[in-house]
Structures are given as structure tokens and as C-alpha cells.
Deep mutational scan, measured.
Amino acid sequence: MQIFVKGLTGKTTTLEVEPSDTIENVKAKIQDKTGLPPDQQRLIFAGKQLEDGRTLSDYNIQKESTLHIVWR
């Protein structure tokens, strides 16, 4: 499925993911596209910070959802 990651600059990155992907895995995909290391990424969805060990489905993140990224 496709999801979007929007940064503070307003730039949006598209990712191809599975609902079973962990947040850690998603951060690795973001690094592949942007070069930003996972330890500098904070992902937010529906006002919650996403924890590395959880999956996208744990947070009810579905296709075409938009996550927000904040740099540490």
C-alpha cells in the first residue's frame, strides 16, 4: 500500500509499505529516500508519536494515510 510522509518543509515523500511493517522498517525506507537516519526521525500520526516496535496496523494506518515527520 502507499502512504505519504510529510515533513516540516511541506515536502511529501511517498512510500510503498505493508500494514505489517514495523515503524522501524518504515524509518529505514524513509532513510533510503531522504538520507535522514532513523535515529533522527520522529513519526507522528493522529497526534501520536509512533514507536519503533509497533506496526502500521497497530496504529490503524491505512493506504494513503499521511504521517508527519519531525527531525530530532
Rank of each mutant, 00 (worst) to 15 (best):
A28L: 15
T12V: 12
D21S: 07
E18K: 12
Y59A: 02
Q49I: 15
D58I: 02
Q40G: 11
M1Y: 14
K27D: 00
T13W: 15
G7N: 11
G47M: 04
D58R: 02
E24C: 05
K33E: 09
T66K: 05
I61E: 00
Y59R: 00
L50T: 02
V5M: 04
D32C: 06
L50N: 00
D32K: 13
T14A: 11
S20L: 11
A28R: 13
V70G: 07
T9P: 13
L8M: 11
A46W: 07
I3M: 03
K27Y: 04
I30R: 00
R42H: 13
K11D: 14
A28W: 14
A46T: 05
Y59H: 03
P37D: 09
P37R: 14
T14V: 13
L36S: 04
E16Y: 12
E64S: 09
I44Y: 14
V5P: 01
K48W: 08
T12Q: 07
I3R: 00
E51V: 07
L50G: 01
M1I: 10
D39V: 08
G53L: 08
T13M: 13
K6N: 07
I69P: 01
A46N: 14
T9M: 11
T22F: 08
A28C: 06
A28G: 12
F45S: 03
N60K: 08
Q41R: 03
T12Y: 11
M1T: 03
R54Q: 08
L43P: 01
N60V: 04
D21H: 05
G35R: 05
I3K: 00
D21Y: 07
E16Q: 13
H68K: 08
V70Q: 09
R42V: 15
S20M: 09
E18N: 12
Q62T: 13
I23Q: 01
W71L: 15
K33L: 15
Q40A: 08
G7R: 06
P38D: 04
K63C: 05
G47T: 04
V26P: 00
K63G: 12
R42Y: 13
Q41G: 06
F45K: 02
G47A: 04
W71S: 12
V70T: 09
T9W: 12
P19T: 08
E51D: 07
Q49F: 14
F45G: 02
Q49L: 13
D58T: 04
Q49G: 08
E16A: 08
K6S: 08
Q31G: 08
M1N: 02
S65H: 07
L15S: 00
G10F: 09
T34Y: 11
E24V: 06
A28Q: 12
T34W: 14
F45H: 07
A46K: 14
T13S: 09
G7P: 07
S65A: 12
H68Y: 11
E51L: 09
G7W: 13
T34V: 09
I44V: 12
R42L: 14
T66F: 07
K6P: 02
F4I: 06
E18A: 11
A28V: 12
Q2D: 05
T34L: 14
L56D: 00
L8N: 08
K11G: 15
A46G: 11
G47Q: 04
V5H: 01
R72M: 15
K33M: 10
F4K: 06
K6C: 06
W71V: 14
I30V: 05
K63Q: 15
E51S: 06
Q49E: 13
K48N: 10
